[in-house]
Nucleic acid binder design. Structure first.
Length: 301
DNA sequence: AATTCCAGGCAGTCTGTCGT
DNA sequence: ACGACAGACTGCCTGGAATT
């Protein structure tokens, strides 16, 4: 049994050209090496295949039956190898790839709704899975490929991941249209008279960025309700005299029966970023998807 | 586990010879 | 005379050992 350890692909390529040219010098020219090099290659090929492969005649080199029989398989092999090292360019119009994006409901509303519209147009055969965020397992899910890209905030991202800034978001204070607070500008005392509601996606906490600001002011509010999603937040706000801070871009999309008031203090906003595993850095499908998100982030800003 | 170093082997060129 | 092949030499690559 012949050993393929000594076989390199360039030898097979040389054999393929030799079969076409039936001449060592012309083969050397085509391979951009010197004639003795091809001679040496032929000698190695003869050892590997245990066959003379070519015999010299008056009319040049004549392939042996064994060499002629190798030709179709050689062409296939070289073609396959060429495809292997030159993966097809990503074409959104024809791609049938499936991508999984982890993103919370606020970002779904701001980014994913326009993303889907864009995808239906420019990548009609692609499939997209939107998944609720996994803060704890995010890194391992990105590493294993269960999630391809996450839209999130920097605080949730392990330093081993790659990130790209999309846009900066601000909070606005929101109440329902029928809320007893009528003036746009509200005093701190009046602001604290009412019960508040906040979004805590994972742990049901009653504290958020607003409470950190209040603590520094030596004050505190009563958070009566903690909900897991921004969709629930907007529903609840419409039904009761509560106050909530919500992302400005979300309010712009879900302001039915709601209005903003000017809070007596500012709450720092947050950066929205994409995060992915370095493994997929140059994966053409992923690169394309991240570019789409970046574009949408820029237009959302 | 990753990086660096080193020895051995191999493929390439140049030059020259041989066979058709 | 032309083209294949062989020998001498050079530089690069690879695999294993040593080191970090």
């Amino acid at each position: 049994m012949a050993d393929i350890r000594n076989l390199d692909l360039n030898l097979l390529r040389a054999l393929s050209v030799l079969l076409e040219e039936r001449n060592v010098s012309r083969t050397a020219e085509r391979l951009h090496v010197t004639q003795p090099t091809v001679s040496g290659m032929l000698s190695r090929l003869r050892n590997i295949f245990g066959d003379p492969l070519f015999v010299r005649t008056q009319r040049g080199l004549l392939p042996t039956p064994r060499a002629e029989a190798l030709a179709p398989a050689l062409r296939r092999l070289i073609n396959d190898a060429t495809v292997l090292v030159n993966p097809a360019e990503f074409d959104p119009q024809t791609s049938t790839a499936t991508l999984s994006v982890s993103v919370n409901d606020y970002m779904q509303s701001v980014l994913i709704v326009p993303l889907v519209a864009e995808l239906r147009r420019s990548a009609p055969k692609m499939k997209l899975a939107i998944r609720n965020p996994e803060v704890a397992g995010l890194t391992s899910m990105l590493a294993s490929g269960q999630i391809d890209v996450a839209v999130t905030i920097p605080e949730f991202v392990d330093p081993s991941l790659r990130t790209q800034f999309l846009y900066r978001e601000e909070y606005v204070a929101v109440v329902r249209e029928a809320h007893p607070i009528r003036s746009r500008r509200v005093s701190l005392k009046r602001f604290l008279d009412y019960d508040h509601v906040l979004v805590s996606p994972s742990d049901g906490s009653f504290e958020g960025p607003t409470d950190n600001v209040l603590r520094e002011l030596g004050a505190s509010r009563r958070v009566a309700l903690s909900v897991p999603s921004f969709f629930t937040l907007t529903e609840v706000l419409q039904e009761d005299d509560l106050i909530a801070f919500m992302p400005r871009r979300l309010f712009a999309r879900r302001s039915k029966n709601l209005r903003t008031i000017t809070a007596p203090f500012a709450v720092p906003g947050f950066d929205v970023i994409t995060a992915w595993h370095p493994r997929t850095d140059s994966e053409s499908t992923h690169v394309w998807m991240r570019e789409q998100l970046l574009k949408l982030g820029e237009s959302a800003a």
